[in-house]
Nucleic acid binder design. Structure first.
Lengths: 402, 402
DNA sequence: CTGTTAGCGCGTTCAG
DNA sequence: CTGAACGCGCTAACAG
């Protein structure tokens, strides 16, 4: 098209302002940096006027080039689709605002390649620090960050081989809280559903804590379920209560289907509705599954009491919970919650709507603290890597109570 | 990993590389810019090695400073909490990736002051363009953008007094689609619920289209509802069907409560469950409301047929829909959908879960197109401001069908 | 108090 | 093909 890519109006530079104000660039620079005390009120007024007249705005790029710091920090988010991330972001933004930082938000969209690319981009833009909610990968792609590289703080999960500050949920306590809640409410067949562990520490920790509580003192756990690449379930028990771990690889529809099928068998085996009134609730005609008395898994009936087990699902995070809820609804109809309880870490907006019990993470504070840590790091703090574990809050809803 | 990482994070500069490669900066620069044809293979190899050895990464800031373009564009999002925004973002990112742009995502979090601040920040960082999903404000804060300023393209809504490309949903068609769907399915008492119009064109357009369809040929609309500052409802009718507009100011709890109260009266007045089987569905004991035969509004019974009206809510977007759903569930229990149908523009993740009918926006494409427009603008295209209206897709779910 | 002089890291003539 | 020199917009000494 037009050969002149030049904008209609080239933005004014510091030189323009100096000329307009009839002075040198230095005074302008001083004015911009708030060194008012060293400027005569008269000059100051002229500068002010010139700036106003030219609609001048200092070029942060040039400024950063000279000064060596551009007040930019990178915020690498693994998955913005996860409400957790957006909430953390709010905290990050607030903190940045307070500290005069400008967050560059980068969204890896669950793609390792994106993560790598953005990280590289961030360093070429010479951000002063990075707060990263990493994908489950090796430290490889995070090379430029951390130790020898630019300051970094991890969010939600730590990365193997990378020493850096980390702030996130107290996974251990949260998983215990949830498990105990389910146990206390009489559920004795609990399935912990989680995405592939890979390198994601938070998933590992949550599952480990769950398993630990389930196995209790006299652990008689065993490995079970489908064999093969990472799928399948671990099983343990405590005081007659059964605990299983199910891996749900959301990225692979086929794997999801297989895992859900296993779950279905367990639910069907658990038999009838969980409550007394439940049967009256049939929004009939939808339910695809029969109230099967099929006892294939052998876990449906408590061998001691002879009563049918009460089954509950413990989702390791919101995406998993959503996947489960959608499936259960499709299979058991709108009234699926009468058949199986659902508890989830993370508190998505639809939780209240569907009455699902959750453990809400202190997302805002996580984001805020992360920036504070990073800021200290940027300012030169050299202490050893710190961990900040914040507690989750159990929000009991209809799904798991009565 | 041969050489020791330099002490104080001192990144290698082009000069370092030149020295290391035993050549001048120019050659390095050429290498970086892919002008391989003018470099002897031998020199090229040396440069490559030097870069590798020093882990050199060009400084985009300095580069941009010189070249005048830094490949940065701003993406100003009004509310990341709205899934719509995140989805649009995906499209934006994909397009940026394809075009070699780097999006700086700024989240105004519904605060006008934030919007202003970020816009200013973006210009000081000399972004080459901005794609903005503006808050409902006057063109004032968008001054630096558009006409005389940096290229901009609007998303979802246009801004009064600001001429720029715009890409978004075909609001008119979408609202018609939804309204007709409700009408066709026998709903004859339809409430269009929308956030305050303010300067948000999309809300205005949606409501206008709704009203137009409802008033049909023989329009006998009237203004009604609570008086006062922007609250209240407009009422119109078509072929015996009633159409109301309810403004829901989500930012003000008190206003929300008042508006919802008005809605409740209408729903109560509409009387019993909407379907034949509905009564059998009572997840009883929860429903706070009685199957009131109260006829206060006078609209509950069709004066012609004498039959109770079938009431439906048409939410102008997802946040509104969520607010409505939460309220309805709290008031009428888990089975609220038996009493009132809900249709929403936007297709949040919980829609499928709750069976709410929606009109899904082509969010990804909206984002993608926005960047394409912006890119053209950046490259100097000078055509008059364009509008790109993309169609929405009706997704019928249980809520509104049978 | 104020102007002058160097660069920051890089791209771009323009002569070798 | 290569390198020296200049300047982008701005800040930081260093003199007046």
């Amino acid at each position: 098209m037009s050969t002149t890519p030049l904008a209609t109006t080239r933005r004014a530079t510091i030189t323009d302002v100096a000329r307009e104000a009839g002075t040198g660039k230095t005074s302008i620079s001083r004015y911009l940096n708030g060194e008012m005390s060293v400027l005569s009120p008269e000059l100051r007024a002229r500068i002010e006027a010139a700036i106003e007249r030219l609609d001048y705005q200092p070029n942060q790029m040039a400024r950063g080039l000279k000064r060596g710091r551009n007040r930019l920090i990178g915020m690498l988010v693994a998955d913005l689709t996860n409400p957790y991330s957006v909430e953390v972001l709010q905290g990050v933004e607030a903190a940045c605002h307070a500290l005069g930082l400008m967050p560059l938000i980068c969204h890896a969209a669950n793609e390792v390649e994106m993560e790598r690319r953005y990280l590289q981009l961030l360093t070429t833009y010479r951000v002063e620090g990075v707060i990263v909610n990493a994908l489950g990968v090796r430290e490889e792609t995070l090379r430029p960050v951390g130790d020898g590289g630019i300051p970094a703080v991890l969010v939600d999960r730590s990365v193997e081989g990378l020493v850096a500050d980390m702030v996130g949920l107290d996974n251990r306590a949260a998983a215990e809280l949830g498990t105990r809640h389910l146990l206390d409410n009489g559920f004795d067949d609990i399935w912990f559903v989680v995405q592939p562990f890979e390198q994601v520490s938070s998933r590992q920790l949550r599952e480990a804590a769950f398993r630990e509580v389930m196995s209790g003192a006299g652990a008689k756990g065993r490995e079970g379920g489908l064999g093969g690449k990472g799928e399948g379930s671990r099983t343990g028990s405590k005081g007659g209560a059964l605990g299983h771990t199910l891996v749900l690889n959301l990225a692979e529809p086929a794997a999801v289907e297989r895992a859900l099928a296993e779950l279905d068998r367990a639910i069907d085996a658990a038999g009838g509705p969980r409550g007394a009134v439940a049967n009256a609730t049939g929004n009939a005609g939808r339910s695809a599954a029969r109230s099967a008395t099929d006892n294939a898994t052998g876990n449906a009936i408590d061998s001691a009491t002879g009563k049918p087990r009460r089954i509950a699902l413990f989702a390791a995070n919101a995406p998993v919970a959503l996947c489960l809820a959608l499936h259960l609804k499709a299979r058991y109809g709108a009234d699926w919650q009468a058949r199986v309880a659902l508890l989830s870490i993370d508190d998505p907006e639809w939780a209240e709507l569907t009455g699902v019990t959750t453990i809400r993470q202190p997302t805002y504070e996580i984001g805020y603290r992360a920036v504070e840590f990073l800021h200290e790091r940027i300012e030169g703090v050299q202490t050893t890597a710190r961990d900040c574990l914040l507690p989750g809050e159990l929000i009991v809803r209809a799904s798991t109570s009565r």
